[in-house]
């Protein structure tokens, strides 16, 4: 895909954002949902947080590889 191709691009900045976003979701939102007893929300928040972190890892690897 051209958008993830070589050359100068803007995606390096997204790596900390992926991790930060994921961590905030896991640490803030998932906990809050757990405390509020919203099981479904909590499960989704955990999924969302880990998804963010996983994507962060992918972008990080991409930054190394390219």
């Amino acid at each position: 895909m051209t958008i993830f191709g070589q050359g100068v691009n803007y995606y390096a900045f997204s790596i900390p954002i992926w991790f930060l976003g994921g961590m905030l979701v896991l640490l803030v939102d998932a906990r809050r949902c757990k405390m509020a007893g919203q099981r479904k929300d909590e499960r989704f928040a955990r999924f969302a947080g880990w998804l963010n972190i996983a994507l962060g890892v992918i972008f990080l690897v991409r930054e190394w590889a390219v």
């Binding site: 976003g21 979701v25 949902c33 509020a36 479904k40 929300d41 989704f44 928040a45």
Partner: peptide, 10 residues
């Protein structure tokens, strides 16, 4: 879901 705040940082 009930908690829209999940999505803000996500």
């Amino acid at each position: 879901l009930q908690e829209p705040r999940i999505f803000t940082f996500f």
